[in-house]
Design a protein around this nucleic acid. Structure first.
Lengths: 209, 209, 209, 209
DNA sequence: TATGAATGAGAGTTCATTCAT
DNA sequence: AATGAATGAACTCTCATTCAT
């Protein structure tokens, strides 16, 4: 069984290795311009080998996102569980969570938000789509619960908590994409952290009763 | 020269006609899955003919965005010129401007924000890229000027006006994309208007001194 | 309309040209070992071009067969219409029909019978399958009608006419395949004509009352 | 040497086990669509292991046929040895032999006749090809000898006995393939036995003097 | 101006086969 | 003996773009 263990571990490592290479290339070239050959070259494997670890290009791409979405969920849950903080404090913790996730893997976070409303999403296997759906919904649900509580405690204005969650999620994704966009267009350096700080400052002030 | 005039007009009309067809197909299939043949079929022209009016697929796609970006600029400028409104009122007018632009052509607006940080952007001719750059920068500049004034009048908190402009732009694009995404994933109906209302309400409250 | 006519003719000629080349290669290499590239090389076209004329490899292959099956039908019908011949004579005409079809295109006839019960048949588009089905059924029906008449005229033994048709069809296909097989295995020269003569002689003698 | 014996026996058993699995898959999917992986899965071995028992896919496939061809030879020989039967009776015994072989392994029999004139045959190792050649020739020789005797005894018409053997072989293979084909195309139930009965009835009547 | 046939450069995928363990 | 990871060669099919007419 030691052997089986080792094999399994090695397999997992290979998957990781491929994931890392894929992430790198996808980030530079984007999904469509990246070829399996590109990724194979980066891993120093043959293209055929990639298919031993991932069913196809689509699934390889999406699996990268799932990993980050899962991490997002974990981080958000941790925030939701901070029961001894005020709702306002917890919203600020949301910001940290978002930012942590971004730092954890900026390129994939960009890809995820880029994935939103894209043709890749439209051409996904039902299973993957439902996984993504589940994870996003879960994230939104956690965020909603925080707002819910703030509203219940009369700290926040009385708006639909899911709407508030959607908005803060949109703020984050909007800023991430727009900053990235500016970098491509303008070659400007990154202001994400600062922009996010101001955005949350405004947002928190805005929802307070 | 009457003839030349007419020819030019006719050429412009053809371009329009192609643009309309392209928009329709791109919206349904996304950029990569749309073929020139698809667009040709829709226009009842041949694929070859499209190249008489647009240099290539990329430029055809982006030209659609330019049209909307120009409209966006016009709408924003109008808001900026409303000199007899308070800064707060003008921010609320921004919302209307954004929403108008969205209604003017939702699919292209989605495409534009989708374009942000996308592989298409990475593979654009310098001229087009600089046109887009110019138009976006112009939009941001106009919005900034409004915040600038609010800050000068001590109505708004003292943050970098460009950062505020970036944020409000990000809020808009984030909401547009996220709502679209939810529609694909969940088949949910559209809540864009409502979500935008709440977002701006919070934002305005948040930037007020 | 002269132009359109010409274009149509040229298109048809191209299809023919491709069909001829395809037949040649398929016959030598068999379906699976033949690549579209092979056929393209033979036609001096590019592989991509083939797809302007045939939807895919499968359809290209089957279209060759359809042509021959249609010819078979026509030949058989002609035999059935020879109303002033005795049933026995008409059975002998069947032999000529079969042989003519074979001579018309031996390689494709072999392919057709080879197609029977093959994996190609199992992986055919429903439309093509139904076309083949229809043509085969039609052939069998025509042959049956001849036997039917012979039986009605008390010339032939009273067996199910469709069974008789199946048998004569099987005899023909069996001989064609077996002779071809012997050629591959033994490099023997072809005895098809003679074998067919004897087989029909026996068959006719055997069904006579 | 007991050990060596056992090893040999075990090896043979493994080969059998693989052969059984392969037959099953080949029959369902056909040669080209069957992967070594498929067969490995069915045997619960790994793909690599198959190569310890068979040189390659081709040889694995053909070895299945050899087994049946050998059985065919044995059955035919038995018929030839029935010295106290009339030639006519022995031809009818041929039918039983054929049918027995078919029942012994219908799918492989279909494959064998399908193999005739196929691309597989064209890509076989010389040794295998010569084995097949030998077995087929042997079968034909045995059948010929029966006809030979019938002719010598003035019971059968005086035609080349090998031609008669070819014909009866072709009749059998033709019917087997055509019935199989009808099953795929029409989903009709099987009439092989009945059709074979009629065919032999006609054939025997036809060759009698 | 318009056509549409032709191209050709891939791309994603599959799979028989090998070989280190 | 058995594994199964890895290979790499093919193969089918697509499509943006060109160009002779």
């Amino acid at each position: 069984m030691g052997i089986q263990e080792r094999k399994k571990r090695e397999r997992e490592r290979r998957r990781q290795q491929i994931a890392v290479a894929a992430k790198k290339i996808f980030s530079v070239k984007g999904f469509n311009k990246t070829t399996m050959e590109d990724i194979a070259r980066e891993t120093e494997l043959s293209a055929g080998t990639l298919y031993l670890y991932y069913k196809n290009k689509n699934e390889l791409f999406v699996s990268l996102s799932l990993r980050v979405l899962k991490y997002m969920n974990i981080r958000l849950e941790k925030v939701a569980k901070e029961r001894d903080r005020t709702p306002e404090q917890r919203v600020m913790l949301l910001k940290s969570a978002f930012y942590d996730v971004y730092v954890f893997d900026p390129l994939i976070v960009i890809n995820i938000f880029h994935l939103q409303s894209s043709e890749i999403l439209k051409n996904l296997s039902p299973e993957l789509l439902s996984q993504i759906k589940e994870l996003s919904q879960s994230s939104i649900a956690i965020i909603s619960s925080i707002f819910q509580e703030g509203i219940a405690q009369k700290q926040f204005i009385d708006r639909h908590p899911v709407a508030l969650a959607d908005i803060i999620w949109a703020v984050f994704s909007g800023i991430v994409l727009w900053e990235e966009s500016k970098r491509i267009i303008d070659d400007k350096k990154e202001y994400l952290k600062q922009t996010l700080d101001i955005a949350f400052e405004i947002f928190v002030k805005g929802i307070k009763k």
